[in-house]
């Protein structure tokens, strides 16, 4: 066995090397987020700067309800509303379904059934979003076309339904984890007082798990508002008009960028970045809300 100093220095060198390797890896994420933010904001805010001759009015951009690059009309209000309505709709349907699924898996289901449902949910999370879109187009849109007063099935409703399915895994997994983390002494205490299983779930377990469940809801909102590929195939992407019914087509912020970034140039391209800025701000609000929730949980 060689116990010379030389050997130890070698080990120290290794330690130092790995320390910096880890540090570097950590910085990749941090640098990326700053680079993306800077890039998107720099390009996206450019058209609204007073010194930019070929710019565009911020107010027109945020309050316009038409997107006609050919005639220099770039209004995204109807997209913001479309994105928000689609998200609210997906949350309204998806959260109760997801929460009840989580309760079922964690509290009520016999082991055998839970062991079928849980992997199914995990698989749902892993399906690429384009396949959700294909499914939405081939099934949901097709069915909706039959019932829609409009000529096509692409609609706010189709978007909501696809997003609902897409947020389910997030809501279910987060809620199930939160429910399992509720100490079993609460469960025992409640049942020993003569509460039924369902009373125990609604009055003790869900309230005790609520911060984790909220975190799942917030993540679900983030997923719904940021989803692009699946939504693009089923939303219809009109060039104008605030949606007024579930059958109306919508053009979420994300698909606006994806549809046109490939060929746009000049102010048109900059304004697609501006759309990204608006999207970014929504996501940042959601993340702040999530951080606050997680922070509250620790307290």
């Amino acid at each position: 066995m060689n116990l010379t100093k030389n050997n130890r220095t070698d080990k120290n060198r290794k330690e130092t090397f790995f320390k910096y390797l880890f540090l570097f890896c950590a910085f990749v994420a941090v640098i990326s987020v700053f680079a993306i933010t800077f890039f998107v904001f720099a390009r996206g805010l450019k058209p609204f700067m007073p010194w930019n001759d070929s710019g565009y009015s911020l107010i027109d951009f945020l309050s316009g309800v038409e997107w006609r690059p050919g005639s220099d009309k770039f209004g995204i209000l109807y997209m913001i509303i479309g994105s928000l309505l689609a998200t609210i709709g997906a949350i309204t349907i998806g959260v109760p379904i997801g929460l009840f699924t989580a309760v079922f898996i964690a509290e009520l289901a016999p082991k055998k059934i839970a062991n079928i449902v849980r992997p199914a949910v995990e698989l749902l999370a892993g399906i690429p979003s384009i396949l959700y879109g294909v499914f939405g187009l081939g099934m949901i849109v097709k069915i909706l076309t039959k019932y829609s007063p409009n000529a096509q099935g692409q609609s706010l409703l189709a978007t909501i339904l696809v997003l609902t399915i897409m947020i389910l895994p997030t809501v279910i997994t987060m809620s199930e984890t939160a429910i399992r983390a509720v100490p079993s002494c609460y469960r025992d205490g409640s049942l020993a007082l003569g509460a039924s299983k369902i009373q125990t779930v609604f009055k003790v377990i869900i309230p005790a798990a609520k911060s984790g469940i909220f975190a799942g809801v917030v993540l679900g909102i983030g997923r719904a508002i940021g989803e692009t590929m699946a939504v693009m195939l089923v939303s219809g992407n009109p060039i104008a008009g605030i949606p007024t019914s579930l059958w109306d087509r919508v053009r979420p912020l994300t698909t606006n960028i994806a549809l046109e970034m490939g060929y746009a140039s000049g102010t048109h391209q900059d304004l697609l970045f501006s759309t990204g800025v608006v999207l970014f701000i929504f996501i940042m609000i959601i993340n702040l809300a999530l951080n606050k929730l997680v922070h509250n949980k620790i307290k």
């Binding site: 002494c185 025992d188 205490g189 409640s190 007082l193 003569g194 009373q199 003790v204 309230p207 005790a208």
Partner: peptide
């Protein structure tokens, strides 16, 4: 129980829990 297990709610709601159920 062995370990005190009040529910994470107010004292009042803890006592009221059983009767309410």
């Amino acid at each position: 129980f062995q370990k005190p297990n009040p529910f994470p709610m107010s004292c009042y709601d803890n006592i009221a829990y059983g009767p309410r159920c």
